[in-house]
Each structure stands twice: as structure tokens, then as C-alpha cells.
């Protein structure tokens, strides 16, 4: 690959892939088949391209040096992907493990359907953040848009700012923590008192996200579990 350049940085070899010179397919092929665990790879000039660093399954660090498009780091396993900019729709979609960090803002459906690992959005996430999450932990430094954590099954969504309309609609067993204002709760989501395990969880996730806030300032939102089974008294809520 002629356009690869190698440099020494902090005693670690960094491979730089330039999206202006390589196709998204070539970049992903490199990340899938030509890196060893422990490698560090930079993707320069992402220029809003979609599908960068998708489907990784290696213990590597990937830095995307700018704004990127849709589905960045989707289906991630083990890798740690950092986007030094903002991203479009569905960053970290269906993440299995590892971590994805967005230094800027994320558009809709961040970490949608995520099964595990950690997704951090340092800025704002948009609507449908954590939709149908299945075990992923998500920390948003700013606010989230409408219908976030819709039908969220497992995992934790931490929102350091505000939450938009219909937060946690049809929530299953995922838990949401919000520090700011909640515009409105969705069907079957309710506010609950913070317990000891909540403090521990928040301390752990805020620590991993590198956000210095007091867990006591968050509210806990969880499922009232009234929509689990059909109940004609609640038929308007389904």
C-alpha cells in the first residue's frame, strides 16, 4: 500500500491511512486483515465518508482524524476507535465490545442495538441515541434528542446534559441516567430513586468517559414494566 506512512509516536508504531488516497474498502480491508493486536492506526482526511472502521475485531487503537459519516465503527469488537470530529448517523451501531469515542457530536441512532462495550459522545448525540440497545454502555457529555433509548433492552445510557421528548419509550431492562432536564418520558419509563449500585455504575462510567461530574446530580430512569405483557388497561400506551 504505497500511501501508508509510518512514524514513531510514544514508542508505538502508528500507521497512517489517508482516505484521500485509499478507498473506504481498502482502509477497512487493512484494518481487518493486516494489523496485529496492539497496533495503532490513524485514518486521515475522513471527509465525512461512511462505513470507516466497520467490523473490526482486533485489540487495536484507531484514530479517525476529522468529521466522519454514517455507521462509523459499526459492529466493533475489541478495538478502541476515536473520532476526532463529529459523525453522522449510527456511530457504533451494533457494537459488541471495545470502545468508540466521538470527540464532537453524533447524529441520530448512536450506538443503536449495541450489545456490549462503551460508546462515548463527548458532545451532543441526536435523536434515537441507544435505540434498541442490548447491553452497550453509552455516555453522552452533552444532550440527546427525541426517543432516545427506545425499546432499550440492556445496558446503560448516561446523559450529562438534557434529554429530548419520549425518553426511554417502551424501555425494557436498560437503565438511563440524566443530569439535566428531561423533556418528557416515553411510555412505561419512570424516574426512580438513585441507589448504591447506581452511584457505583455512574462513577465507573463517568470515570471511563473521563467526565468529572457528581453521580448524585443524576436521575435514574427505568422501566415501570407495565408494558411487558398485554394489558387492556394500558392499550393506549402500546
Amino acid at each position: 500500500m504505497a500511501s501508508l506512512t509510518r512514524s514513531r509516536e510514544k514508542q508505538q508504531q502508528v500507521v497512517r491511512l489517508d482516505q484521500e488516497k485509499l478507498s473506504v474498502r481498502e482502509i477497512n480491508e487493512y484494518l481487518h486483515h493486516r494489523v496485529r493486536d496492539g497496533a495503532r492506526v490513524e485514518i486521515a482526511n475522513p471527509d465525512g465518508q461512511h462505513n470507516l472502521a466497520v467490523g473490526l475485531d482486533a485489540d487495536i487503537d484507531v484514530d479517525i482524524l476529522g468529521h466522519a459519516g454514517y455507521y462509523i465503527a459499526g459492529m466493533n469488537k475489541r478495538a478502541r476507535v476515536t473520532i476526532h470530529g463529529s459523525v453522522g448517523w449510527s456511530v457504533g451501531e451494533n457494537i459488541m465490545s471495545g470502545s468508540v469515542r466521538v470527540k464532537g457530536n453524533a447524529s441520530e441512532c448512536a450506538a443503536a442495538s449495541g450489545h456490549g462495550g462503551l460508546v462515548v459522545v463527548e458532545g451532543d448525540a441526536s435523536s434515537r441515541c441507544g435505540i434498541s440497545m442490548k447491553g452497550v454502555d453509552i455516555v453522552v457529555g452533552g444532550s440527546v434528542g427525541h426517543v432516545s433509548a427506545f425499546m432499550a433492552q440492556a445496558g446503560t445510557l448516561v446523559v450529562c446534559g438534557d434529554a429530548g421528548p419520549a425518553l426511554g419509550d417502551s424501555l425494557y431492562e436498560a437503565v438511563i441516567y440524566v443530569r439535566g432536564k428531561v423533556h418528557s418520558l416515553g411510555a412505561d419509563a419512570r424516574e426512580e430513586a438513585l441507589g448504591k449500585t447506581d452511584h457505583a455504575k455512574l462513577t465507573d462510567l463517568l470515570g471511563k468517559a473521563g467526565i468529572d461530574l457528581n453521580p448524585k446530580d443524576f436521575k435514574r430512569i427505568a422501566s415501570a414494566r407495565k408494558l411487558y405483557h398485554w394489558n387492556s388497561d394500558h392499550q393506549d400506551d402500546y
Binding site: D47, G48, G69, S86, G88, E108
Partner: peptide, 27 residues
């Protein structure tokens, strides 16, 4: 109301640029 279709805005002192996707504005 559901923001189902995308849009992104980039504004500077010189222009306002709007597109369905950021890659259209990257240049």
C-alpha cells in the same frame, strides 16, 4: 417532527452550506 430525513448545516462568515450528508460539504 421525527427528523427522519437527514440534513447538516455548516456556517462560516462567508457562507451557509446545507446538505443531506456532511461528505458533500467536506471540500
Amino acid at each position: 417532527a421525527f427528523a427522519c430525513k437527514p440534513a447538516v448545516v455548516a456556517e462560516t462568515d462567508e457562507y451557509v452550506a446545507i446538505a443531506s450528508e456532511f461528505r458533500s460539504l467536506a471540500h
